[in-house]
Design a protein around this nucleic acid. Structure first.
Lengths: 192, 192, 192, 192
DNA sequence: AATGAATGAGGATTCATTCAT
DNA sequence: GATGAATGAATCCTCATTCAT
């Protein structure tokens, strides 16, 4: 039943269905048919709106990164000290909208897929640089040598993510956050 | 002219070709033909020895885990103190035979693939539990609450791995090791 | 705001867009969307007016044949001798409205398409018979055996057309006309 | 039932089936399945040997051109005078192996398809230049201005071909040859 | 043991056509 | 009258797997 102005609605539905499907199957080897069916439409329509499966995957990736970016910006805008900023970044990474099993699974799949796709590589590169510069900006006033600390935090976030994807019983976001923040704090004390 | 006793040689060649191919392409979406060609034989023969592509991938996974396990055991057998044991485990993770781009890429692909494959999930579970118990055994005598420290080390190793797979300029093994050991040492001091 | 009496305007726009699109792409494999877009309307409307893509192609074919027929009639009405009539027919085939690259390309595509479409075959049959009888009417008073001369002229016209479609540098209409008329004149002299 | 050394046999069967299918359906819009089935194999195998449908079409085109080229060379090697050479070329164009309905239909389809395909354009260009230079070589010693005669002969050959494709009752090769040779002879006499 | 010929299922993509608005 | 949303059939192509030799 065709209606007017469906484009944004359909695109949104497809992006969400793509993430859900990747999250459920745990792989980027999802078919356009599966995605379209989950989004309640035909595969032809999915192509009509996205042109290709690749563009659909890319849109899903961008959606995840945008969600994450918004979360980080929101959390940081409320932080007043460097230390709070670090905490805000880490918390945002494990917020309830980001640390969901399907999002985590999709995220990891894209991480690995970056090997093959130039655009995915570019998008992840942006995310990584932004995370790194955010961390560095706060760490510079806190420790003498911020570089390895930033590196450690980044690795910890990604490490907790990848392990989450495998856990039989998922880790709670709060535990993930504490794990990382505790480590950070100890690195801090040491250097100060 | 078929020769006798070729089986182990062929299987080994295929396993190595599988890892190399996954490492090169950066994905598990390698074809049996590609693997067989790289191993210098026909795809038919590959099936003859492994029965299915899935079995080939699994064999490659086991090969990587065995390499890693041997490395860890070797390193630990030479360690005399708990602290040396921790260091041995971390060093083994980044030894020259494990921290190669193709191995890292294959590792990550299997990590993600665990979502789909029960057997891969089982194998990775074994690796994780072994790593965890190895770390705990040493950490128990070093800190009051070893659990989170073990968790942190595990996450750091996996995190550095996944980031390595994306880096334009790969991180040197020595740097990876230091990054992790430094963090560990600081967590230690704190608790003592 | 739909207007009244749009039908002939729309149909005409679609027919011209069809020819232009076939001429540009050099194939009948044009999509209804391409045609409709070029005609400044939606594909749905195109179907509304023509019922099917096939009918659109047919209308385009008829348009070309009508153009050609009108041109021939016009030229012949001004000719006074058999010889002038022959010349009129040949000239009409290469008039500026017929010998345009897009028209030529469309013409040839329809020629080949006649294999598949009964209606196209019928239309081209009419054209061929009309051409033939026009030529014969004039040739009868000029040569003893007009049949092969008519056949030759027909083949030359079509041959020059098909070659035109492939030329890197298109032949000028005047040259095409002279080529054919010269040949005809020589055949004439011979027989007389 | 797989056998050894099937490649040339399969390729040949596919090329012939491609021409037959195009000839029967009168269009390049034949499916790989149709071709493969006619050649007695699966579509997968067709792709195995040719890589793509396009390559299959191209191979068919080359086959037709090779047949034609061989015919021309054979006929010309037996001709002793310029006049005989011209006749040899024309006769070769309408030999029983070239002037078959399916070959003619395929030829024309490729002619039109040259608009779209660079490689087809290139192949036809070679054929046209070879024909032209063959004709010119003989005509130079026969007439003062050979260029338009060569052009006329070329157009006549192509024109008779395209008309053949449409005829309800195909023209006999002998009639086609005579039609062209008679015209040529009259052009000759005139100029001498 | 080894090959590579052969199949066929499965997936992305295109497009004419329909239809609710 | 007009749009463009929506469908689904059709097609090319890939690839794991099988099997005759």
């Amino acid at each position: 039943m065709p209606k007017l102005g469906m484009e944004p609605i359909r695109r949104d539905a497809l992006v969400k269905a793509t993430i859900a499907e990747i999250g459920t199957l745990g792989t980027l080897d999802v078919t356009v048919n599966q995605i379209a069916k989950r989004a309640g439409m035909s595969s032809g329509l999915a192509h009509h709106y996205f042109g290709s499966k690749d563009q659909m995957l890319l849109a899903a990736m961008r959606h995840i990164l945008n969600l994450y970016g918004a979360e980080v910006r929101g959390a940081m805008s409320m932080a007043n000290t460097p230390s709070e900023r670090i905490e805000a970044i880490v918390r945002a990474s494990f917020s309830s909208s980001n640390f969901r099993p399907d999002i985590v699974a999709a995220w990891l799949n894209f991480y690995v897929h970056a090997h093959k796709s130039k655009e995915v590589r570019r998008l992840l590169g942006i995310y990584q640089r932004r995370l790194h510069s955010n961390l560095m900006a706060s760490l510079r006033s806190m420790v003498d040598d911020p570089e390895p600390v930033a590196e450690t935090i980044g690795a910890l976030i990604d490490g907790v993510y990848i392990r989450q994807a495998l856990r039989q019983r998922p880790m709670r976001a709060e535990d993930a956050i504490n794990l990382i923040l505790d480590t950070v704090h100890q690195c801090m004390k040491e250097q100060k």
